[in-house]
Design a binder for these strands. Structure first.
Lengths: 219, 219
DNA sequence: GCCGAACCGTAACGTACGGTACGCTTCCAA
DNA sequence: TTGGAAGCGTACCGTACGTTACGGTTCGGC
């Protein structure tokens, strides 16, 4: 199982200059993928290679720091447990779906996932674990309380929150991420994402909504 | 959009020796990921590097040939349109789900997708397009006739087969592929796959099944 | 038996790139 | 003013690897 903990929010320890360097790495990663060279980073960030090695150790350290830096930036706001009625639940789910689609279709996410996947192949570091931890697992951690709240309010029915979450995940993401990672041109406009979020949410409610007050189904 | 056509079944043009070489590449790819070297391939396949270059042009050509060779091997049997009742439809969908889960969780698929994704980052070749074409799009081409048949028989209700397919895809795959690609240990046993296939099928039928004769729902 | 094609094994070449060393400038702080 | 830390730019080193070259071997055709 992936190691989750550790290095949660070491973004504190980064100076502004270092953050700027990592942003440069991010931009470079988006532009030309994993074959970015230390020389290119140094040139783009207007710093010396020696500084890069002093700050980040080696190339993998730089990549890891970049992934974590990006992760620390997308730390989203926790959902507010206001109403706890169906409208609130629906809005929350649609919000999660929309946010997630925006994330996985962003250039940055695609680039980062690509490099993490490449590295996962040659098990050198745990870049994949970091990405997973700050992506799919972070989403689950944030969404599950909402699902539990929905169940507690009698709006949802499920026995295992993890299973319910994974169904929601599947209904939202479908084939989007793998297609984008493999280079498929798939323009997700704001409107498309909004529509998909609504559809996914409705489908999820159809599957896991409480039978009272909503046509539901299960097996 | 991805170019689909061309090189459909150039596996004819491969000699047995060449196929053996590509199988060696496949094995090597599974074992040590994308950082396989031409020297390693030559050693493993007991052939000379000169031969590799004569046959496949360069490293990318070798990789492309390998991906296509693997793709030509997994050409599955078309589903037989026998009964056209609910049992047949359910069994077909479960079969598709099970097959797909087996594919995406196989070492070979993971390794191939990883290298294709890496290459998609640095848009050198169209490895990603080849993988997509023989993976997700091939699945859609095989499944859609089943969905259409189900609709024609009054068992399914949907307006767009593509949308219905993507929902099915999402319900089946969920987070499995991205987790595996990112290096998450996720053992999919035969039993797990079978259960997931049944669950995904039931959920799909709940969403897209005709309202008559089955508890259905939609928005 | 002989020739050439195909191919194996290996040595060699060139380059790209990770990592290091060093000189120079800037900028505090004593 | 000066010493030193931090950092920039660049030259340099070592190595890994893609690619090429070449000698030796097998084998089918004459």
């Amino acid at each position: 199982m992936l190691q989750a903990n550790a290095d949660i929010d070491n973004s504190e320890a980064l100076t502004e200059r270092q953050k700027a360097v990592l942003d440069a790495v991010l931009r470079l990663l988006v532009e030309e993928g994993d074959q970015l060279t230390m020389t290119a980073v140094a040139r783009r960030a207007s710093c010396s290679k020696e500084t890069l090695y002093k700050w980040f150790g080696d190339r993998d350290g730089l990549l890891t720091a970049t992934v974590q830096w990006q992760a620390s930036k997308v730390r989203v706001v926790p959902v507010d447990g206001k109403g706890l009625d169906l409208a609130w639940l629906t809005a929350s789910l649609e919000g999660f779906a929309s946010d997630w689609l925006k994330v996985i279709s962003s250039d940055t996410s695609i680039a980062l996932n690509r490099v993490a996947i490449s590295h996962a192949g040659s098990g050198k570091d745990n870049l994949g674990a970091v990405v997973l931890e700050n992506g799919r697992f972070a989403l689950a951690r944030r969404l599950k309380p909402v699902l539990e709240a929905g169940r507690h309010a009698g709006l949802l029915e499920f026995t295992d929150a993890e299973t319910a979450f994974r169904s929601f995940f599947g209904l939202v993401a479908r084939d989007v991420q793998i297609r984008l990672l493999l280079g498929d041109r798939l323009e997700l406009t704001e409107a498309t994402i909004g529509g998909d979020a609504v559809r996914a949410t409705q489908q999820f409610l159809a599957l896991y909504g409480a039978k009272t007050g909503r046509k539901a189904s299960d097996s």
